[in-house]
Nucleic acid binder design. Sequence first.
DNA 1: ATGAAAGCGCTAACAA
DNA 2: TTGTTAGCGCTTTCAT
Lengths: 356, 356
Amino acid sequence: MASRPSAGSVTIEDVAREAGVSRAAVSKVIRNAYGVSPAMKARVAEAIEKLGYRPSVSARGMRGATFTVGIEIPELSNPFFPKLLAGATAALSGSPYQLIIAPADPEHGEGYRAIQALVDRQVDGVIAVSPLVDPEWLEALAANVPVVMIGRHDRSDKYDAVVSDDEEGARQVMRHLLDLGHRDIAHLTPAAGFAGIGSGAPQAIRVDAYRDAMQEAGLGDRIRVVRSPNGAPESRRVALGLLAEPDRPTAVFASHDEPALGVLHAVADAGLTAADVSVAGYDDIEIAAHPGISLTTVDQHGERMGRLAAELLLERIAGRAEPRHEVVRPELVVRASTRPPRPRGGAARLRAVGGT
Amino acid sequence: MASRPSAGSVTIEDVAREAGVSRAAVSKVIRNAYGVSPAMKARVAEAIEKLGYRPSVSARGMRGATFTVGIEIPELSNPFFPKLLAGATAALSGSPYQLIIAPADPEHGEGYRAIQALVDRQVDGVIAVSPLVDPEWLEALAANVPVVMIGRHDRSDKYDAVVSDDEEGARQVMRHLLDLGHRDIAHLTPAAGFAGIGSGAPQAIRVDAYRDAMQEAGLGDRIRVVRSPNGAPESRRVALGLLAEPDRPTAVFASHDEPALGVLHAVADAGLTAADVSVAGYDDIEIAAHPGISLTTVDQHGERMGRLAAELLLERIAGRAEPRHEVVRPELVVRASTRPPRPRGGAARLRAVGGT
DNA sequence: ATGAAAGCGCTAACAA
DNA sequence: TTGTTAGCGCTTTCAT
């Protein structure tokens, strides 16, 4: 690949001298700006190649663009977010823009720091996945740099948004469970203090859809919203408690796949199977399709969302002024983790029947 | 959190004016450099707060440090890498350094571009996970910026390394399988052209350890190294072919957990179970412990490796000159995916007995 | 302990 | 089409 790494040693000045032209000329060539003769272009290109010149992004940032777009991500350990990144990376692949990722430090909630860090580094645009940062803060931010938010249901005419129809997705899950015949359906969602919880956040929308669906099915008195810290182990523990209750639910709808895995684990811990308790998740992470897991879930099309976000950002950087708000339609994926509830009868819990 | 986002509008000049001091004074305060009276420090701090000043990283980068460390990662979709990131993030959490991640664009193999992008952005140090980039290129790089490589077995006195003892890890797996009584053990490893393959890379070391272990066990004639493109689906396909062979192996040792999941999938596809074919992986990603998967694997202590890498980098940035090469000891984790082979006998394959 | 001034590498007017 | 020049916001000697 590149003959050898450059670390700022050779400057535009050196290239200019080597090629016998002015610095401005070199500058124009590297940005392929208007008004350079093919001849000069060639000579400069040759000098650049020969010297292994790389423009300093810092210096560029002081005047113009850095050709960098930043994306802030809450947690990489949840496989849904890498999907977003894959999409964004793909969309940027042809462009002159380099993607850098700033992980939101879990110690310092909700991404403010990470987003600010990106802006401090003069990125030309920001993609962020922070459902709870203050809208006013975001608008102030977006006044200075193009911003695309992923997963926010609020509308702004300052920043763009790419969002999944979470109401629709959650309703698809509920319809599926109700159609199977379930009546005791619990919903597992993040505890307060976790990203995703808070009005307007995807998880909150899903909770509402769950409640509404239960209500509309005449099951208002069976609504059961269980809160758990994020992470599969935590959800497993909480689910274990839920399953130990005398009137345990016949189905659990988890707000996303990670906790759903925890619930599946708890089901196994309790010596139960999918025939006893159905489990549904949300996101369709890769492992959900594995026969050992086989989790019914909702495909959010994370990769498409990431790609779309990057595309919108490039448009903004290119000058678009009108805000855009793109809604991606989610899709239910039915697998073996959801089954009809056991037929009526008392001691059904005593015998667990295995099988995929 | 931060009252409102700043986007370069207020400069060090503004702060100096507000506080009635020189720019140099402000500069000293924000770096808490030597020679500032508490009085001035307080006044400046107040002005910074009032104006919401944020130093421009670009401008800083032109003279001194950017307080940014960059990490290059080959693929975020493999859950092992987020472990590394979690460790690095934790180690940096208290420091003034911000972590930015540059994903290696799969289109442009082996991370050269991503690493260069980081250097172009004047990061104060680089952590990279590219087993195959040319050592000379790296040494040239390391001459200009502190570098810590993860997973490289070669030694350099220019850059540091954090590496797992892959030979030992692979040997632990082989010892386990041999102890169980397996003799027909195949090894699944990345096809040429994939990161990880190439001399000195972790995967290559594991292949060698596999061969040696077979040889030493007197099973040299049963050595079977199968190559597959990366990714669970690809490995599943390849494994399906392997399992269809008349003399299919009784155990498959996959070079890491992702392909191991693919093999498990193939085992299920073929209507077989862990009693028919044992499967072992490498990395101990979180899902491996799930009862639906229950994969025997090797814990590389990825989080510790990430933390260590960040610590070494900070030391380098602080001035250490002597190279360091840290080896982390891996640990076998035995789960239900590995069992003793079926007792001798012909039509053993006809009946599949289920289990945990 | 504090400030003045030079300059890092680049881009963007403006002149030629 | 090409070159000249003036900064961008900061850090860093070097005086004071």
